[in-house]
Amino acid sequence: MNGPTDDVELAAHLVREAGVLAQRMRADGLDPQRKTSISDVVTAADHAAERLIVDTLARQRPEDGVLGEEGADREGTSGRRWVIDPVDGTYNFVAGLDWWCSALALVDGDDLVLGAVHHAATGRTWVGGPAAGPSVDGVPLPRLPDRSAAESCLVTYLHPPFYDTEVGAAFGRMVSGVATVRMLGSGTMDAMAIAEGRLHVLCQHSVPPWDRLPGEAIILAAGGTTRTVRAAGVEWYVAGAPTAVAEVAAALSGQRTP
Protein backbone atom coordinates (compact mmCIF):
# COMPACT_ATOMS: atom_id res chain seq x y z
CA MET A 1 0.00 0.00 0.00
CA ASN A 2 1.49 3.34 -1.01
CA GLY A 3 1.11 6.52 1.05
CA PRO A 4 0.33 7.05 4.76
CA THR A 5 -1.11 4.05 6.60
CA ASP A 6 -1.87 5.62 10.00
CA ASP A 7 -5.35 7.22 10.17
CA VAL A 8 -4.06 10.50 11.58
CA GLU A 9 -1.28 10.76 9.01
CA LEU A 10 -3.67 9.82 6.23
CA ALA A 11 -6.25 12.39 7.31
CA ALA A 12 -3.63 15.16 7.41
CA HIS A 13 -2.31 14.10 4.01
CA LEU A 14 -5.78 14.09 2.45
CA VAL A 15 -6.77 17.59 3.60
CA ARG A 16 -3.39 19.02 2.58
CA GLU A 17 -3.66 17.53 -0.90
CA ALA A 18 -7.25 18.70 -1.28
CA GLY A 19 -6.42 22.21 -0.11
CA VAL A 20 -3.42 22.53 -2.40
CA LEU A 21 -5.50 21.35 -5.38
CA ALA A 22 -8.34 23.76 -4.62
CA GLN A 23 -5.95 26.67 -4.17
CA ARG A 24 -4.23 25.91 -7.48
CA MET A 25 -7.55 25.71 -9.30
CA ARG A 26 -8.64 29.03 -7.79
CA ALA A 27 -5.46 30.65 -9.10
CA ASP A 28 -6.29 29.32 -12.57
CA GLY A 29 -9.81 30.84 -12.46
CA LEU A 30 -13.21 29.60 -11.33
CA ASP A 31 -16.75 29.54 -12.69
CA PRO A 32 -18.90 29.29 -9.54
CA GLN A 33 -22.39 27.83 -9.72
CA ARG A 34 -25.24 28.75 -7.36
CA LYS A 35 -26.63 25.93 -5.21
CA THR A 36 -29.47 27.20 -2.99
CA SER A 37 -28.77 30.95 -2.84
CA ILE A 38 -26.33 33.65 -3.93
CA SER A 39 -24.21 32.88 -0.86
CA ASP A 40 -24.35 29.08 -1.34
CA VAL A 41 -22.07 28.31 -4.26
CA VAL A 42 -19.96 25.46 -5.59
CA THR A 43 -17.03 25.30 -7.99
CA ALA A 44 -15.12 22.72 -9.98
CA ALA A 45 -12.47 22.94 -7.28
CA ASP A 46 -14.94 21.65 -4.67
CA HIS A 47 -15.75 18.65 -6.86
CA ALA A 48 -12.13 17.96 -7.82
CA ALA A 49 -10.88 18.16 -4.24
CA GLU A 50 -13.63 15.82 -3.05
CA ARG A 51 -12.86 13.38 -5.85
CA LEU A 52 -9.15 13.41 -4.92
CA ILE A 53 -10.01 12.44 -1.33
CA VAL A 54 -12.57 9.80 -2.34
CA ASP A 55 -10.21 8.19 -4.86
CA THR A 56 -7.36 8.08 -2.36
CA LEU A 57 -9.58 6.52 0.29
CA ALA A 58 -10.77 3.91 -2.22
CA ARG A 59 -7.13 2.81 -2.48
CA GLN A 60 -6.02 3.32 1.12
CA ARG A 61 -9.23 2.42 3.02
CA PRO A 62 -11.36 0.37 0.58
CA GLU A 63 -13.56 -1.06 3.36
CA ASP A 64 -14.50 2.36 4.77
CA GLY A 65 -17.50 4.39 3.67
CA VAL A 66 -17.45 8.03 2.56
CA LEU A 67 -19.88 10.94 2.78
CA GLY A 68 -19.04 14.21 1.03
CA GLU A 69 -20.71 17.58 0.78
CA GLU A 70 -20.54 17.47 -3.02
CA GLY A 71 -22.30 14.14 -3.42
CA ALA A 72 -19.90 11.35 -2.48
CA ASP A 73 -21.88 8.70 -0.60
CA ARG A 74 -20.64 5.14 -0.28
CA GLU A 75 -21.39 2.62 2.42
CA GLY A 76 -18.41 0.61 3.56
CA THR A 77 -18.11 -2.75 5.26
CA SER A 78 -15.90 -1.69 8.19
CA GLY A 79 -18.47 0.40 10.05
CA ARG A 80 -16.25 3.45 9.58
CA ARG A 81 -16.98 6.47 7.40
CA TRP A 82 -14.97 9.48 6.25
CA VAL A 83 -17.01 12.70 6.19
CA ILE A 84 -15.56 15.18 3.70
CA ASP A 85 -15.81 18.93 3.19
CA PRO A 86 -13.43 19.61 0.29
CA VAL A 87 -13.79 23.42 0.52
CA ASP A 88 -15.43 24.84 3.63
CA GLY A 89 -16.17 28.52 3.13
CA THR A 90 -16.74 28.38 -0.62
CA TYR A 91 -18.17 31.91 -0.80
CA ASN A 92 -14.92 33.21 0.74
CA PHE A 93 -12.95 30.92 -1.56
CA VAL A 94 -14.67 32.31 -4.65
CA ALA A 95 -14.37 35.91 -3.41
CA GLY A 96 -10.59 35.61 -3.03
CA LEU A 97 -10.69 35.67 0.78
CA ASP A 98 -8.49 33.39 2.84
CA TRP A 99 -10.89 32.16 5.56
CA TRP A 100 -11.59 28.76 3.99
CA CYS A 101 -10.18 25.27 4.39
CA SER A 102 -10.34 21.63 3.39
CA ALA A 103 -11.58 19.32 6.12
CA LEU A 104 -12.67 15.81 6.95
CA ALA A 105 -13.66 13.64 9.89
CA LEU A 106 -13.55 9.92 10.56
CA VAL A 107 -16.42 8.27 12.41
CA ASP A 108 -16.73 4.67 13.57
CA GLY A 109 -20.40 3.91 13.99
CA ASP A 110 -21.64 6.64 16.33
CA ASP A 111 -18.14 7.46 17.59
CA LEU A 112 -16.23 10.48 16.31
CA VAL A 113 -12.65 9.25 15.85
CA LEU A 114 -10.74 12.25 14.50
CA GLY A 115 -10.84 15.41 12.45
CA ALA A 116 -8.32 17.07 10.13
CA VAL A 117 -8.30 20.57 8.66
CA HIS A 118 -5.91 22.28 6.24
CA HIS A 119 -5.79 26.06 5.79
CA ALA A 120 -4.23 26.56 2.37
CA ALA A 121 -3.58 30.29 2.87
CA THR A 122 -1.09 29.61 5.68
CA GLY A 123 -0.24 25.97 4.99
CA ARG A 124 -1.28 24.97 8.51
CA THR A 125 -2.84 21.58 9.27
CA TRP A 126 -4.77 20.66 12.41
CA VAL A 127 -5.60 17.12 13.53
CA GLY A 128 -7.19 15.76 16.68
CA GLY A 129 -9.58 13.31 18.22
CA PRO A 130 -10.01 10.92 21.15
CA ALA A 131 -7.04 8.83 20.03
CA ALA A 132 -4.86 11.76 18.96
CA GLY A 133 -4.28 14.88 21.01
CA PRO A 134 -4.98 18.11 19.15
CA SER A 135 -2.08 19.56 17.21
CA VAL A 136 -1.25 22.00 14.44
CA ASP A 137 1.64 21.06 12.15
CA GLY A 138 2.66 18.44 14.71
CA VAL A 139 2.82 20.90 17.63
CA PRO A 140 0.37 20.01 20.45
CA LEU A 141 -2.32 22.56 21.23
CA PRO A 142 -2.71 23.64 24.87
CA ARG A 143 -5.89 22.77 26.70
CA LEU A 144 -8.73 25.12 25.88
CA PRO A 145 -9.35 27.53 28.79
CA ASP A 146 -12.89 27.83 30.10
CA ARG A 147 -14.72 31.15 30.09
CA SER A 148 -18.22 32.54 30.38
CA ALA A 149 -20.34 33.73 27.46
CA ALA A 150 -20.01 37.30 28.73
CA GLU A 151 -16.24 37.00 28.26
CA SER A 152 -16.47 35.27 24.88
CA CYS A 153 -16.33 36.12 21.22
CA LEU A 154 -19.17 34.21 19.55
CA VAL A 155 -18.66 33.23 15.93
CA THR A 156 -21.82 32.42 14.00
CA TYR A 157 -23.89 32.89 10.87
CA LEU A 158 -27.56 33.49 10.19
CA HIS A 159 -28.92 33.81 6.66
CA PRO A 160 -30.70 37.21 6.40
CA PRO A 161 -34.14 35.79 5.46
CA PHE A 162 -34.30 34.28 8.97
CA TYR A 163 -33.80 37.58 10.82
CA ASP A 164 -37.52 38.45 11.13
CA THR A 165 -38.63 34.94 12.14
CA GLU A 166 -38.70 32.87 15.34
CA VAL A 167 -35.25 31.64 14.36
CA GLY A 168 -34.07 35.24 14.30
CA ALA A 169 -35.55 35.79 17.75
CA ALA A 170 -33.65 32.77 19.10
CA PHE A 171 -30.52 34.12 17.43
CA GLY A 172 -31.08 37.45 19.17
CA ARG A 173 -31.32 35.74 22.57
CA MET A 174 -28.14 33.83 21.82
CA VAL A 175 -26.00 36.83 20.89
CA SER A 176 -27.31 39.16 23.60
CA GLY A 177 -25.22 37.57 26.36
CA VAL A 178 -21.80 37.42 24.70
CA ALA A 179 -18.97 39.94 24.61
CA THR A 180 -18.82 40.32 20.82
CA VAL A 181 -19.89 38.55 17.61
CA ARG A 182 -18.12 37.64 14.37
CA MET A 183 -19.44 36.18 11.10
CA LEU A 184 -16.39 34.98 9.16
CA GLY A 185 -17.80 32.50 6.65
CA SER A 186 -16.18 29.15 7.42
CA GLY A 187 -17.51 27.17 10.36
CA THR A 188 -14.58 24.78 10.38
CA MET A 189 -12.00 27.58 10.35
CA ASP A 190 -14.02 29.20 13.15
CA ALA A 191 -13.67 25.92 15.07
CA MET A 192 -9.89 25.96 14.58
CA ALA A 193 -9.71 29.48 16.00
CA ILE A 194 -11.68 28.21 19.00
CA ALA A 195 -9.40 25.19 19.43
CA GLU A 196 -6.47 27.60 19.56
CA GLY A 197 -8.23 29.93 22.02
CA ARG A 198 -8.44 32.89 19.62
CA LEU A 199 -12.25 32.71 19.47
CA HIS A 200 -14.36 31.11 22.16
CA VAL A 201 -17.76 29.71 21.17
CA LEU A 202 -19.56 29.03 17.91
CA CYS A 203 -23.24 28.50 17.26
CA GLN A 204 -25.27 27.97 14.11
CA HIS A 205 -28.46 26.14 13.21
CA SER A 206 -29.04 23.22 10.82
CA VAL A 207 -25.35 22.31 10.54
CA PRO A 208 -24.67 19.28 8.28
CA PRO A 209 -22.14 16.65 9.42
CA TRP A 210 -19.34 17.78 7.07
CA ASP A 211 -19.56 21.31 8.51
CA ARG A 212 -19.66 20.07 12.10
CA LEU A 213 -17.61 16.92 12.64
CA PRO A 214 -14.06 17.91 11.58
CA GLY A 215 -14.02 20.93 13.88
CA GLU A 216 -15.91 19.14 16.64
CA ALA A 217 -13.29 16.40 16.87
CA ILE A 218 -10.49 18.92 17.37
CA ILE A 219 -12.43 21.13 19.80
CA LEU A 220 -13.29 18.09 21.93
CA ALA A 221 -9.69 16.90 21.86
CA ALA A 222 -8.64 20.34 23.10
CA GLY A 223 -10.97 20.14 26.11
CA GLY A 224 -13.97 22.02 24.73
CA THR A 225 -17.55 20.79 24.64
CA THR A 226 -20.36 20.65 22.11
CA ARG A 227 -24.11 20.61 22.44
CA THR A 228 -27.20 20.54 20.24
CA VAL A 229 -30.32 22.49 21.20
CA ARG A 230 -33.79 22.52 19.65
CA ALA A 231 -35.15 26.07 19.48
CA ALA A 232 -37.54 27.89 17.11
CA GLY A 233 -38.16 24.66 15.23
CA VAL A 234 -34.51 24.06 14.22
CA GLU A 235 -31.52 22.32 15.75
CA TRP A 236 -28.65 24.56 16.86
CA TYR A 237 -25.08 23.37 17.23
CA VAL A 238 -22.94 24.99 19.94
CA ALA A 239 -19.21 24.31 20.48
CA GLY A 240 -16.33 25.81 22.42
CA ALA A 241 -15.46 26.73 26.00
CA PRO A 242 -17.68 24.62 28.31
CA THR A 243 -19.27 27.42 30.35
CA ALA A 244 -19.91 29.58 27.29
CA VAL A 245 -21.49 26.60 25.50
CA ALA A 246 -23.84 25.95 28.42
CA GLU A 247 -24.85 29.61 28.63
CA VAL A 248 -25.42 30.01 24.89
CA ALA A 249 -27.49 26.81 24.83
CA ALA A 250 -29.59 28.11 27.72
CA ALA A 251 -30.12 31.45 25.99
CA LEU A 252 -31.34 29.69 22.85
CA SER A 253 -33.87 27.78 24.91
CA GLY A 254 -35.03 30.93 26.68
CA GLN A 255 -33.61 29.71 29.97
CA ARG A 256 -31.22 31.19 32.49
CA THR A 257 -28.08 29.42 33.67
CA PRO A 258 -27.54 29.11 37.43
Rank of each mutant, 00 (worst) to 15 (best):
M1D: 13
N2P: 13
G3R: 10
V8H: 12
R16L: 01
L21K: 08
A22F: 05
A22Q: 03
M25H: 10
M25S: 05
A27K: 10
D28N: 11
D28A: 15
D28F: 02
P32C: 06
R34S: 11
D40L: 12
V41I: 14
T43D: 00
A45M: 06
D46V: 07
H47E: 13
I53S: 05
Q60W: 03
P62Q: 08
D64G: 05
V66Y: 03
G68C: 07
D73C: 06
R81M: 11
W82Y: 08
P86N: 10
P86W: 06
D88L: 05
Y91V: 07
L97D: 12
L97S: 08
W99Q: 13
C101K: 09
L104R: 01
L104M: 02
A105L: 01
G109L: 04
D110K: 13
L112H: 08
V113Q: 03
G115L: 00
V117R: 00
H118V: 05
T122V: 11
W126R: 03
A131Q: 14
G133M: 11
P134K: 00
S135A: 15
D137C: 07
C153S: 14
T156M: 06
P161F: 07
D164R: 15
E166C: 05
A169I: 01
M174F: 04
M174D: 02
S176Q: 13
V178D: 05
A179H: 14
R182N: 08
M183T: 15
L184N: 08
A191F: 07
M192T: 03
A193H: 13
A193R: 14
I194L: 03
I194Y: 07
R198G: 09
H200N: 08
L202H: 12
S206A: 13
D211I: 01
L213W: 11
L213S: 05
E216H: 07
A217V: 02
L220E: 09
A221W: 10
A222D: 12
A222W: 06
G224T: 02
T225I: 10
T228N: 09
A231W: 01
A231M: 02
V234H: 09
E235L: 09
V238S: 00
V238N: 03
G240Q: 07
G240V: 02
P242T: 10
P242R: 05
A244T: 05
A250R: 10
A250C: 12
